[in-house]
Amino acid sequence: MAGFNIMEDKLSNAQIAWRAAQDIEDGSYVNLGIGFPEMIAKFQPEGRDVTYHTENGVLGFGKAPAEGEEDWDLINAGKKAITLNPGASFFHHADSFSMVRGGHLDLAVLGAYQIAQNGDLANWRVGSKGVPAVGGAMDLVHGAKRVAVVTDHVTKDGKPKLVETCTFPLTGVGCVTRVYTSLAVIDIEDGKFILREKLPGLSMEELQAVTGATLHIDGDVADLIVPEDLS
């Protein structure tokens, strides 16, 4: 068997999103972060009834409208035009963040620069230069019953994104419960990374070598298998 190439044989963003989508439960209320996490909605398994929340005051939004059909008073937190599903509702910003912090959402899925083994998340800025912008990131990490992250396992230059301690400015402390990466699915429990699934061609040693903190095993490690051609 040929060796595993971390940069070439890893999952695409669409494949990571597909895997995260498999865990979205029927009947749940879900917030998907701006950008990459938004892709998860596309792979929502058939037969599951999921209501999507967006910070600017909409529950129950659906797909983007066709080009030319946009109504710019109807947007999501990423300021993209959306449509409404039957049963949708509007509310003001304080109610919207009451849904977030008040524990009413079942799941929030976010992107990450770094995730620490105790569940700390850094995803809002990488340094002190430029114009800082936080948006709803610091709110979204609190309150949802599950806070998951979708991310490449390593940075573009190959450095681990799963680390012992975050070095970038924190978004929240001890908030992440599950991480879907381009190589593995990892839970965070009691201050430790617990490996749940890894790509079948990847050895434990290879995975540990690109992870910045110890990966623990608790029971079986399943093969991480996703469809080949997703777009």
């Binding site: 910070e55 304080a94 963040f97 912008a133 936080v134 948006g135 610091m138 709110d139 402390v173």
Partner: peptide
């Protein structure tokens, strides 16, 4: 710079006559 939910709640609090409140948002940041 104010987290979005904190911004909303700080505005709401003034309207409701509540001078301060506690939120989990931004703790440790």
């Amino acid at each position: 710079l104010v987290p979005q939910g904190t911004l909303a709640e700080r505005i709401r609090a003034r309207g409701a006559g509540i001078p301060a409140f506690y939120t989990p948002t931004s703790f440790g940041t």
